[in-house]
Amino acid sequence: MGRSNVIKEIYWLRAIACLAVVLTHSITTTLSHYVDTMSQAEEYLLIALRFIFLFGTPTFVFISEFLLSYSYANGVPKGFFVKRIKFLLVPFIFMGVVFATITREIGGSFINQVALNLFMGGYTGYFVLVIFQFYLLHMLMEKRLKVWSPRLVLVGSFVINVAYLSFFHFTTPPASGLGEYFWQRGHWLPVFGWLFYFTVGYYSGKHYRTIIEKLKPYKQYVYVLPFLITVPIFGLVRTDILSVVSSKRIDYVLFTTAVIAFILLLASQVNKTPSLILIISKYSFNIYLLHTVFLHFMPQINLIHPFLYLIIATVACIGLSILVVKLTSILPFRSYLFGKTLPVPLNTRSPLDWRKQEQVSGPLNYLNALKRSVWNPRR
Rank of each mutant, 00 (worst) to 15 (best):
K8Y: 05
C18R: 01
L23T: 09
Y34L: 11
Y34E: 00
D36Q: 13
M38V: 06
A41G: 04
Y44V: 13
A48E: 00
R50G: 02
F60A: 06
S64G: 03
L67G: 05
L67Q: 08
L67I: 07
A73V: 12
G75W: 00
F92Y: 04
V97W: 02
V98K: 06
T101S: 15
G108R: 02
N117F: 00
Y123E: 08
F127R: 00
I131N: 07
F132Q: 10
F132H: 08
M141I: 09
M141F: 12
K143P: 01
K146S: 10
V147N: 11
V155H: 02
L165Q: 07
P173D: 05
P174W: 04
A175Y: 10
W188L: 12
L195H: 03
L195Y: 09
Y197A: 09
Y197M: 15
V200K: 03
R209F: 12
I212E: 02
Q220V: 12
L225R: 01
L228A: 15
I229K: 10
P232D: 12
F234N: 00
F234S: 05
R238T: 13
T239C: 08
L242C: 02
V244I: 12
S246I: 01
R249H: 04
R249I: 05
L265W: 04
L266H: 05
L276E: 10
I279P: 01
Y283K: 06
N286E: 11
L289V: 10
T292S: 09
F294V: 09
L295K: 05
N302P: 05
L308T: 14
L308N: 07
Y309H: 15
A316C: 11
A316I: 14
G319V: 09
L320Q: 11
L320I: 12
L323E: 06
L331Y: 11
R334L: 09
G339L: 03
K340F: 00
T341W: 05
L342S: 13
P343A: 14
P345H: 07
S350M: 11
D353Q: 04
D353P: 01
W354A: 12
K356L: 15
V360Q: 02
L364K: 15
L364C: 04
W375D: 13
